[in-house]
């Protein structure tokens, strides 16, 4: 079982550092939105391009749906961030993080010919930071560190290493 994998000290440290860094990023993205009374995902959704753009734009067209989307996004980011940093329900946090990043990526795919109203700060072709962060989370999922370092040690005692 991968859940009981043993790592060298260096391997484990770097896995935990990567997990905490991604968690920090999620937590800040969530909190900065929570504390901005005017924040809404509407502009981001309306700016969507690509084969799923109709779906993302439809989320923005209904104020009630939009409220739910905003709520799930903000609290999703915050809870995923806390989960990654603390190693708390880490597995489900990572999976949720991958899903969220997947949606960000698919709503704004950096494909040839697409330009978005907020230009990104770097240069991207097919691969952008969302995709790299997503892949990093996938790595963290198959190299579990939460049974070593994280509150999950107390919750899932059978997997403790």
């Amino acid at each position: 079982m991968t859940a009981k994998t043993n790592y060298s000290r260096r391997q484990l440290s770097l896995l935990v550092i990567l997990r905490v860094l991604i968690g920090w990023h999620f937590l800040y993205e969530g909190l900065s939105k929570l504390f901005n009374p005017d924040w809404s995902s509407v502009a981001f959704l309306l700016d969507s391009k690509g084969f799923l753009s109709a779906f993302f734009q439809s989320l923005a067209s209904n104020p009630e749906v939009l409220k739910v989307v905003d709520f799930l996004n903000v609290w999703g980011l915050i809870l995923i961030g806390l989960g990654l940093i603390l190693g708390l329900f880490t597995r489900i946090s990572i999976i949720a993080g991958i899903a969220l990043l997947g949606m960000y990526y698919l709503s704004h795919p950096p494909l040839v010919g697409y330009t978005f109203s907020v230009p990104s700060e770097g240069s991207y072709l097919w691969v952008n930071k969302n995709l790299i962060e997503l892949a990093s989370l996938a790595v963290l999922l198959v190299f579990p560190s939460w049974n070593h370092v994280g509150i999950d040690r107390f919750i899932f005692k059978n997997n403790r290493v």
Binding site: V20, Y28, L82, G87, R153, N158
Partner: peptide, 30 residues
């Protein structure tokens, strides 16, 4: 102690809570 799934050792607590101080740093920066 590690072989006993029910017990919680000092080492468990240290490892389990090792990343909690990160939240303190985060709160300060925020």
């Amino acid at each position: 102690e590690n072989n006993n799934p029910e017990g919680v050792s000092r080492r468990d607590i240290l490892k389990g809570m090792a990343t909690v101080p990160v939240l303190g740093a985060f709160a300060y920066a925020f």
